[in-house]
């Protein structure tokens, strides 16, 4: 199982994702340079956090035009798993691979802290390992993390169960006080209609080792691994049949 971790100029969580995939979860992970137009036979793609191209103009606005994003578009259209974390989420929205947009935090300040989250669905390759009742604790670190979209898209997201994670308080309620950035309906992560592309504002790679204070982030990567294994098993059984 091979993960491709994209590297844009200005990516700064690229090594962190590679570290967790390789050294914590024992998977193969490779950095793919933004000028490459091939993903080199990856089974899944992670677009890490950072400030791609300095995030000038608008977060993710320039990265979407890079050579590697062309390859990601094709990969995603064939059902490949693509996870965008933080700036990766912003890039996927700009690229039209995910609905909605991420705007400036309502506080008008960068916000770095741990937040509580709850999975809204288990029907996703990105959160299938998160029990619905579990209070998940992950860090956020962003300036533009306020998820926003029009009413129609929001209704559609809900109808098709595309909301993956919501910010909640210690009691598990999606209150306004629990919302760190002003996101619509406390949305912290969404997926596309095909369910194979997802974006999260929280950083699962920063919460995958006990030493750093928590391991809830592993659940996201383990969900992806589980989905890939299931898919592989299915294709093997198809071949044998």
């Amino acid at each position: 199982m091979n993960f491709a971790v994209l590297q844009f100029p200005g990516s700064n969580c690229d090594q962190d994702v590679v570290h967790v995939l390789r050294n914590v979860l024992g998977r193969s992970a490779r950095l793919v340079w933004h000028k490459d137009s091939s993903l080199g036979g990856a089974d899944a793609v992670v677009i890490p956090g950072g400030f791609s191209y300095g995030d000038y103009l608008r977060t993710g606005a320039i990265a979407r035009f890079s050579a590697v994003m062309g390859a990601v578009q094709t990969f995603a259209s064939h059902g490949g798993l693509v996870l965008g974390i933080c700036n990766g989420f912003q890039i996927l929205c700009e690229a039209g691979l995910l609905p909605g947009t991420l705007i400036r935090n309502r506080s008008i300040q960068f916000r770095c802290e741990n937040v509580f989250l709850k999975a809204v669905t288990a029907d996703s390759p990105f959160v299938n390992r998160i029990p619905s009742e579990k209070l998940v604790r992950l860090p956020i670190a962003h300036n533009e993390g306020c998820y926003f979209t029009d009413e129609k898209t929001l209704a559609n997201l809900k109808a098709k169960k595309q909301i993956l994670l919501r910010y909640v308080d210690a009691a598990g309620e999606a209150t306004e006080a629990a919302n760190p950035n002003g996101s619509l309906e406390n949305i912290a992560g969404v997926c596309n209609e095909m369910r194979n592309v997802a974006g999260l504002m929280p950083h699962p790679e920063r919460a995958s080792e006990l030493l750093l204070g928590g391991v809830d982030g592993r659940l996201v990567f383990e969900s992806m691994i589980h989905a890939l294994q299931t898919k592989q098993a299915a294709s093997v059984s198809q071949v044998t049949n």
């Binding site: 969580c13 962190d16 570290h19 916000r111 770095c112 670190a141 950083h203 750093l212």
Partner: peptide
């Protein structure tokens, strides 16, 4: 400090 990214690089214990 909540305005600073104090966790990037996965090293802050």
């Amino acid at each position: 400090y909540r305005q600073y990214d104090y966790m990037v690089r996965n090293g802050t214990v």
